[in-house]
Design a protein around this nucleic acid. Sequence first.
DNA 1: CTCCAGGGTTTGC
DNA 2: GCAAACCATGGA
Length: 267
Amino acid sequence: MKIKISDDFNLEKIIYSGQCFRPYYYDGIGRFTFQNHILYVEFLGDCTYDFSCSKEEFESIWSSYFDLDRDYASIRKKAKDIFLKNAASFSQGIRILKQDKFETLISFIISQRKSIPAIRGSVEKLCEMYGEKTTVGEDSFYAFPTPEALAKASDSDLASCGLGYRVPYILDASIKVASGEYNLEALDNLSDDELFSALKEIKGVGDKVANCVMLFAYARTSRAPVDTWIQKIMDTYYSGNNPFPQYKDAAGIMQQYAFYYIQNHKI
DNA sequence: CTCCAGGGTTTGC
DNA sequence: GCAAACCATGGA
């Protein structure tokens, strides 16, 4: 179905801004997955996009996945200093995806001390090894593994996905969710500070990963994760100070503009 | 070969 | 409380 989107919406920038690891852009078409759903999106010009889904699925899943109710153009213009003005302008088109909570948690535990291509490789191997093969029409893909599937995985099989020392972290997170000790959906009712603390009780989840999960799966846009690249920006352009908290609910979006910008203008 | 990657935990002071 | 050592692995 054709969807008109007048606000910022660039498929390549959304996909390759480092917030997600399974979607990809190929031959002018973006491919996204969410749980057992798959979606292709093509830009047709004139603010019009072809979504390969029904109206019902668009409204129940993809509209919130792409955060389409938020006005990014107005947020982008709130950048105050010259660095963030440049970053926001360069990154125009990025949106913060609201991704599956368990997938985001596991993916960002894996992300520590890995390059983005290496993260993508590990996540894809996990899906092929433990994900349910899902067929939609003539198309098929591997869904991200369920907590139950990962909770009973063996150390050696997980290690074969290139997870290294993170294997016990993945198991701890999966067992906590599969056992019901953690209900990731119910955690959405917590305040930012409470959710932050709850996530950090999982092994391998520190400040940065917790903030990434909050921003990319719980839509807590006031969270601005500080990784090595954001730290370099703070050291280079802000005398070591953090420029993001002042943007309050837009802090995470500004952070994502900065991250995408610096990835493409490495110092 | 060496160095680094969207960090976190453990240890020592 | 903070700083430093340590962690597996793939890619440049």
